[in-house]
């Protein structure tokens, strides 16, 4: 994994994958420093998001395989296992208060996708 540049002191940007590796309006999983991160290409909104790949409900590495969509204005992903849905912006679970996932900033430059990790 290549370290591109550090923007803030604690944020490191990692090259994750190419744009075409993530299907439009879907997700894919990347391995960064041993951590599984789900990246979402929300083409319909022209936005990119990244979260933990693990769904905290049953600790399954599956969120990258979930369907994305919106609830009101909030972009979200639904875990394929039991359809827990999480905000892509805050990581808060939207249909079960007890769960929260990590979110990460994403940058897209020259057809490459980068993820900021603290």
């Amino acid at each position: 994994m290549e370290t591109l540049f550090a923007e803030k002191e604690e944020l490191t940007w990692y090259l994750a994958c190419r744009v075409e590796d993530v299907p439009a309006d879907g997700g894919a999983c990347v391995l960064i420093n041993g951590h599984q991160i789900a990246i979402y290409n929300f083409a319909r909104r022209g936005e990119w998001y990244a979260t933990d790949n693990e769904c905290p409900h049953r600790q399954q590495m599956a969120l990258s395989r979930g369907m994305i969509g919106s609830q009101g204005d909030e972009p979200k992903v639904a875990c394929p296992f039991h359809k827990k849905t999480f905000s892509l912006q805050t990581g808060q679970c939207l249909n079960d208060d007890g769960y929260q996932i990590m979110t990460f900033p994403v940058k897209v430059t020259d057809g490459m996708v980068y993820i900021g990790v603290e």
């Binding site: 909104r45 369907m67 969509g69 359809k83 849905t85």
Partner: peptide, 10 residues
């Protein structure tokens, strides 16, 4: 309207 979800998509 909106961006769809896990109900209407499938």
């Amino acid at each position: 309207k909106g961006d769809g979800c896990e109900v209407c998509k499938p």
